[in-house]
Nucleic acid binder design. Structure first.
Lengths: 181, 181
DNA sequence: CTGGAATTTCAGAAAGTCTTGAAATCCGGC
DNA sequence: GCCGGATTTCAAGACTTTCTGAAATTCCAG
């Protein structure tokens, strides 16, 4: 591992642990992400000095997050892993997974709490606050559905525009046929 | 604590631990968020059955995240805590803090890695991927700066529109004086 | 000042998470 | 089917984080 890769990997280890994901998993992902070719578990264990079984666990988790893909190389029985290199695609995947794991359960809880008839003033106020939260989350999800529909190529163009929100949205509007419905 | 509040609090405990923030802190926040009035540390400790010192730590962390505000009630020496109830404001605060704690350090790392002259093909490819990541993050931050500029009242209106992205942006565009610059 | 309520700090106990090597399982090629 | 490499599972230990009660500190009221 070159110093360049090594510092990238170390950083993602730190970030992983700030975030729900653990250090090891963060490092494994970072290594695969910058690697020019798919890697097998032994190569990863070797590069990062983790036990083989730790790598196996980490890869399983990364697959559950859909952040890495399994591949087979012809004439090699081992499993190789690679990560999508398009940053936008990665971002979308992460957002989808977080939505499924965090946002949806939260909405479920909020919806069910909001169905209750408040039995006192305290609950009534609590429900008001929960309603505000629910509305925001639902709106953000609508936004996100829209943005998510943009393909990497379009995004690429937008990136190059150094877009401010209005510009970005005018642009997508044009792409999608102009008139709002 | 009513069952309604109790299930909200429990949910935020869970979510907190999925996320960097710990269970206790999540629960304390949730309790303050739905409470009709500011609470003092003893009330919180009592409601959640945490030790007084645990609550003190948790409140310190929530203050560091700027998610709760300290207040003094006339004729009472104790410190009372309340949370902004506007969901959009909370969201902005969270986003700002995460940006400061996670995004900026990542950008710093990426920028410095991208200044290096790659000494081999592997590093060259690694840098390409890092560049893609950096560009995406920088674009998202630009977007966010824009969105962040919207005040709660505007957001409120947008919420009621049930906005899809285009609509939202046309709307903000109108508010901001029409012509893009 | 001083007394005492409120808050914070801190070190150790408790709980939880991560990592490992050994054993079990899987699976393709012969 | 059987061999053997590849992968996964698992229980135990290492390590981290969280939580607590006791002690220290802060700071207001008199």
């Amino acid at each position: 591992m070159t110093p360049l890769v090594s510092s990238f990997v170390a950083h993602f280890g730190e970030m992983g642990s700030r975030w729900g994901i653990n250090r090891t998993v963060g490092q494994i992902y970072a290594l695969i992400f910058v690697s020019p070719r798919a890697l097998n578990a032994d190569e990863i264990a070797e590069s990062l000095s983790f036990s083989r079984s730790n790598v196996s666990m980490g890869l399983k988790e990364l697959q559950a997050w859909r952040l890495v893909r399994l591949r087979h190389l012809p004439g090699d029985r081992r499993e190789y892993f690679e990560a999508p290199t398009d940053a936008w695609e990665v971002f979308r995947t992460l957002a989808e997974e977080r939505r499924r794991r965090e946002v949806e359960p939260t909405l479920t809880m909020l919806r069910s709490a909001l169905l209750e008839t408040p039995s006192n003033e305290e609950d009534r106020i609590a429900q008001e606050r929960m309603r505000g939260m629910q509305e925001l989350i639902e709106m953000l999800m609508l936004w996100f559905d829209e943005v998510q529909a943009l393909d990497p190529a379009t995004l690429e163009k937008l990136l190059r525009m150094g877009a401010r929100v209005q510009k970005v949205l005018e642009f997508t509007d044009r792409l999608r046929g102009g008139a709002s419905h």
